[in-house]
Design a protein around this nucleic acid. Structure first.
Length: 569
RNA sequence: CGGGGCAUAGCGCAGCCUGGUAGCGCGCCUGCCUUGGGAGCAGGAAGCCGGAGGUUCGAAUCCUCCUGUCCCGACCA
């Protein structure tokens, strides 16, 4: 690759739209350009990095026994009506009509299409298990695309689907994918964690997310400091709180003029937020519920959604709270109100706590569950806080930010039932296939790798993901000796299979150094003055800046050695 | 969808308050010069001031509406 003939439009200044490091650097290094909101063109360097990820994913998927295919991007919405996701998936599914007025959509994921294929082509238990995958551009009309490749509307994804005869076999398929994912992300040189996840709108029983730890992550992870427990905070459970065995004290109503917020009430009554219970009101499509959590906790809405079995919950606003309960917000409590009461397990273990008095300017103290009100249900409903006890070992839980780069799901028979995908068993009976679905955000991995590996000068690619392995700077275009050595090194390395970008532009040295750093290419070879003076060229490692001086004839062997150990190690 | 920005040359921005010749830096083109960390000098090209209405003798600037885009929130295999 010759720099002078390759489109790598680097920028000295940061475009105003870029907030996070990966987005900023992808733009500055000329890897991507935006076409419109959440939709990007991959320029040669960006595409090269994407291809690297794809190749690793392909190799490991094939090794795990999966087969590659390619499904259409445009799908008939009829299929989505069959599974009910036409309604459930919402506006993220971009729908449109063709000239015959048939409704189609752009595929955000391919469960419907693959299940349609399976029901047509797979008939016998002899055909199972099977795992089919593709690497393809997906489209999701995200509410708010952001952070460049991190959350685009159009993005490249690997999606795989497994079909099995029964749950046991499906679990096996799931585990094979889980292990393949670990190999993939390890080979990509990423620092990642697998965490238990909520299975979301796609449905299904068991699910893990693979997360790259990074401050710019959009997900919050709960990680035990003592054992292996790790989960998405939407899903993370917490060890049950110890039951307070205190005697119940007599219920009292106290005046709390103008004290609506937890902090104000606590200050006024000289108590801690942990001695108070707040009553939060949520609406779903068909009911209004109140959730009780300790004053210093937050409701985890995903847990609430799952408990209620609904697609959506919304916090009620002041008016809605008043309409449902007749109480102004700030003074709402569980005693004597008529809405359904869902109680966080931690609250269920408390005694003699403080709640709203269900009357303006009043609270109640020494409130006790069972005596003063009844819970419709007690469940784990709160957001984990740092230092909470781990549900497995009781150790302290930590919260970290993460970027979701992969997700594995056990789907069960939800899709095969709604689409009637059956196979014939040994004894000739029809049985629904048991499915799994497995995604990897290919383009997001590129962004995540940059989030994890960069400095003030630019990107720092791990060798396996680098668009090219070596950048070779010719600092003496007009010097025959320098140019001869640079060109012959270029040729030699290419012949040995090294991916090399030769910077043969008529630019000043500083300019070339800056670009080389920005591009994040792991190895930089400089052919310049030190060749004419001392007969050596320099080999510099982008990651740590360590520079080796080598005779030109030793360079290729040394480079090969470094690449081998970086890719196999 | 709620809240808040922003929209002027390829990129980053000033000008708008207080209406009157459209500017700066970077980039780009030409030449000279320079060549180990984004050089210097000289010359040059490039803008429907996001769009549509309105006010005015006159609008980048004031008013109204629209569109796009970014940020926060909600949302998210």
């Amino acid at each position: 690759m010759r720099y002078s003939k390759t489109l790598i439009p680097t920028l000295k200044e940061t475009p105003a739209e870029a907030e996070v490091a990966s987005h900023r650097l992808l733009l500055r290094a000329g890897f991507i350009r935006k076409l419109t909101a959440g939709i990007y063109t991959y320029l040669p360097m960006g595409l090269a990095a994407v291809r690297k990820v794809e190749q690793i994913v392909r190799e490991e998927m094939n090794k795990a026994g999966a087969q590659e295919l390619l499904m259409p991007m445009v799908q008939p919405t009829d299929l989505w009506r069959e599974t009910g996701r036409y309604e459930k998936y919402g506006p993220e599914l971009l729908r449109f009509h063709d000239r015959h007025n048939r409704e189609s959509c752009l595929g955000p994921t391919h469960e419907e299409v693959i299940t349609d294929l399976a029901r047509r082509e797979i008939r016998s238990y002899r055909d199972l298990p099977i795992n089919l995958y593709q690497i393809q551009t997906k489209f999701r009309d995200e509410i708010r695309p952001r952070f460049g490749l991190m959350r685009g509307r159009e993005f490249i994804m690997k999606d795989a689907y497994s079909f099995d005869v029964d749950d046991i076999a499906a679990t096996k398929s799931y585990e094979i994918m889980y292990e393949a994912y670990k190999s993939i992300f390890t080979r990509c040189g990423l620092e990642f964690r697998a965490v238990e996840a909520d299975s979301g709108s796609i449905g299904g029983s068991s699910s893990h997310e693979f997360m790259v730890l990074a401050d710019t992550g959009e997900d919050t992870l709960v990680i035990c400091s003592a054992c292996d427990y790790a989960a998405n905070s939407e899903k993370a459970s917490v060890a049950a709180a110890a039951i307070d065995e205190s005697e119940m004290l007599p219920l009292e109503k106290v005046e709390t003029p103008g004290k609506r917020k937890v902090s104000a009430v606590c200050e006024f009554m000289a108590i801690k937020p942990s001695e108070l219970v707040k009553t939060m009101v949520f609406k779903t499509d068909d009911e209004t519920v109140a959730v009780l959590v300790r004053g210093d906790r937050e409701v985890q809405e995903v847990k609430l959604k799952n408990l209620l079995g609904v697609a959506d919950v919304d916090m009620a606003d002041d008016k809605e709270v008043f309409d449902a309960t007749g109480v102004p917000t700030g003074y709402l409590g569980p005693v004597g109100i008529t809405v359904k009461l869902l109680v966080d397990q931690e609250v269920a273990a408390m005694k003699n706590f403080v709640v709203g008095g269900n009357e303006k300017n009043f609270h109640m103290i020494n409130v006790n569950i069972g005596r003063d009100f009844e819970a419709a249900e007690v469940a784990d409903l709160r957001q984990i806080s740092p230092e909470d006890p781990c549900p497995i070992c009781g150790g302290k839980l930590n919260l970290k930010e993460g970027i979701e780069i992969g997700h594995v799901f056990k789907l069960g028979t939800g899709y095969s039932k709604s689409m009637n995908a059956v196979y014939q068993t040994k004894d000739g009976k029809d049985q629904h296939m048991v499915m799994g679905t497995y995604g990897i955000g290919i383009s997001r991995i590129v962004a995540a790798a940059i989030e994890q590996n960069h400095d003030e000068n630019g990107m720092i690619f791990p060798m396996p993901l680098a668009p090219v392995q070596v950048v070779l700077l010719n600092l003496g275009l007009k010097d025959q000796q320098i140019t001869d050595v640079a060109e012959s090194l270029y040729k030699e390395m290419q012949e040995k299979g090294v991916e090399v970008l030769i910077d043969d532009r008529d630019e000043r040295p500083g300019f070339k150094f800056k670009d080389a750093d920005l591009l994040g290419i792991p190895l930089r070879i400089t052919v310049g003055k030190s060749l004419t003076k001392n007969g050596v060229v320099e080999l510099r490692h982008r990651k740590d800046g360590i520079t080796e001086e080598l005779a030109p004839e030793n360079v290729t062997a040394r480079v090969l050695e470094i690449i081998q150990s970086a890719i196999n190690g």
